[in-house]
Amino acid sequence: MSSGKSTPWALRLATFAGMLFLHLPLLFILLYAFSAEDKSFVFPIPEFTAKWFSVAWNDRPDIWPALALSVKVALIATLIALVLGSLAAAAVWRSKFFGRDSISLLLILPIALPGIITGIALRSAFNLAEISFSFWTIVVGHATFCVVVVYNNVLARFRRTAGNLIEASMDLGANGLQTLRHIVLPNIATALLAGGMLAFALSFDEVVVTTFTAGQQETLPIWMLGELMRPRQRPVTNVVAVFVIAITFIPIMLAFWLTRDTQDVAGSGK
């Protein structure tokens, strides 16, 4: 819709300032990762050093299990979200049934309601059911809010796919399973991948629900929260923060690239 008319300078300025506001703070994280001063956040940074990267790598064995746990949780939660999200999307797309519109609302609830509610609700339910907190309780929490991401992506793709492709396939002799394999899955593959990427980023980063559904386990964000509350080596936290930014940006960029022609990701629902 870009039109030939000139853009008011105030609008340009507001957009520029807004985007600066969104991104500048992350630069300071990077900057402080090189600070030699580890007791305060003094600015300008008195002295620069790269030693915190090696400290984080060599001298902080507490980081690694947290990272490994986060990756494992994110992978499994993503897998569950992929299955549940695409099943729900297929059901909503293929059939008209009573309460169809409520499905979207139900799926979006875990991210539209504050994480603390999802967290404490699951925690008290686990307590009531006498399920002890473990790796799997974290996964359950994460999968719950990841489903909607996959659902939105896949449903958007379904809606863009000509509905009669399935009829055409059946007409040419393919039964439902063959159609699923040869026609449906290849057509939604990139949407699945994009949804999965976003779900992974969401899970990898999550801290609120995790606080309530984890027992003794420490995911990377939980580790970071601990470091923020009781700092040991502030720049090491920054190093890890930079790492977290990098590891979540990659799947998001990929998801964006995979759906670049369609804007499926359009932040819908999240």
Partner: peptide, 23 residues
């Protein structure tokens, strides 16, 4: 711009809060 909005939307909630503690 779209990407510029998406990245902070999906990522690094805790890290971005933390950035402001520095600032």
């Amino acid at each position: 711009l779209f990407l510029g909005v998406m990245l902070p939307l999906w990522s690094s909630y805790l890290v971005r809060v933390y950035a402001w503690k520095l600032i």
